[in-house]
Design a protein around this nucleic acid. Sequence first.
RNA 1: GGAGAGGUGGCUGAGCGGUCGAAAGCGGCGGUCUUGAAAACCGUUGAACUGAAAGGUUCCCAGGGUUCGAAUCCCUGCCUCUCCGCCA
Length: 422
Amino acid sequence: MLALKRLRDNLDQIKTGLASRQIDLHFDAWVKGDTQQRKLKQRIEGLKARQNQASQEIPKRKKAKEAIDDILKEMKDVSEEISELEGDLKTIEEENTNFLLGLPNLPHPSVPIGKNEQDNEEIRRWGSPPTFAFKPLSHWDLGETLDILDFERAAKISGARFVLYKGLGARLERALINFMLDLHTGEHDYTEMLPPIIANRTSMTGTGQLPKFEDDLFKLKDNDYFLIPTGEVPLTNMHADEILAEADLPLSYTALTPCFRRESGSYGQDTRGLVRLHQFNKVELVKFSTPERSYERLEQLLSEAESVLQKLGLHYRVISLCTGDLGFSAAKTYDIEVWLPAQETYREISSCSNFEDFQARRAKIRYRTSAGKVEHLHTLNGSGLAVGRTVVAILENMQQEDGSILIPKVLQPYMGGLEKIG
RNA sequence: GGAGAGGUGGCUGAGCGGUCGAAAGCGGCGGUCUUGAAAACCGUUGAACUGAAAGGUUCCCAGGGUUCGAAUCCCUGCCUCUCCGCCA
């Protein structure tokens, strides 16, 4: 959520900033509503001030055995008027809040201006694509041949866009999870968490999934509960309604969680394989930072996510999302895209964002500065990494002509010393 | 699931329907003392909105209600604790 003051004082500036996201917004109704709301509030507050005055006067008069009929009568009217006006105020306030909750974050000045993913800016590449003396197979073919991925049986159990990992496939997923968590807790100073993966409406609103994107979520029947689409939801909302001490910042948390997405808007895309599933595992990285240092932390977070791919020896590139491709809550986002040889393309494997105070305002996450002031802090998060897509990258990049898969050195201890699959 | 108790400021914990943003203690901050620290003592210390300021309004889990007036009474929901039952 954008700061109300900022919106009122710099409306034009914010309008242009948001327009760069390629979305249509109409502020006129809101401006009207906002003015109306303030006027109403002032009137109500005036009446309440009178009410408060009277509640001091009444007992005084009572004590002095003076008559109070007139003041009681007046107060009865005041009280009625207040409840009437408050009804109006509630309606207007709800409309205004909904509008504000529907506004995306303002892009950071360093974000490239652009219409869509075509305009994203490549920041750097690491390593180089492997060369093959044969035509590399897709991960779904490899997975099936090696009997480590089973999409048909997953469909029988659940439906389309689910996967059943088998044998060494399951082992590989688990090895990656442990490797990533060990790396982030051991070398990068994150605290490991194991949070709930069902979250309530308040939390979903806090991180920005709601109210706009309810259709993308799995909602539990008979409850106002949702399956989390990302570990960001529990890890960020764990500090909702809290005032943290500046000395405790930055806080860094990591967690493995399953993520659940309905992916309703993506028919026909990635229908095969485990790139786009309704359920997948992700190791999430979340940071809480002071505003002054949040962009420095974003670079740090990004490099921590990158180090996973570097240690695995997987070629990737980093891109900066342009304004038109930027997510709803983010002020700036770097995507890490890993090379997939079978499709001869880069695919997103991590998304690292600075949300500035956008989520902190929604979720009321604040900190007390060393000077004693209470301010909203900045939240950041990124994948470190999407585990299923890392399996994809390993299968496709490490495949050999005989159909076997070489296991990266750093992963071998986690695979019981195994050097290859198949 | 059944029975009971409770949810108050950073924490612990008082609080007759009006003078309660709320006692007290702890913690934090500032100071005195000290070479420095501790102890002791003194002072100070919630947040949001609104206003140029003075000030005003709101917030004692959330939402309703009673009342001229609610932290205090009533209802609903959520959460916590104790006991019983069930269970991985």
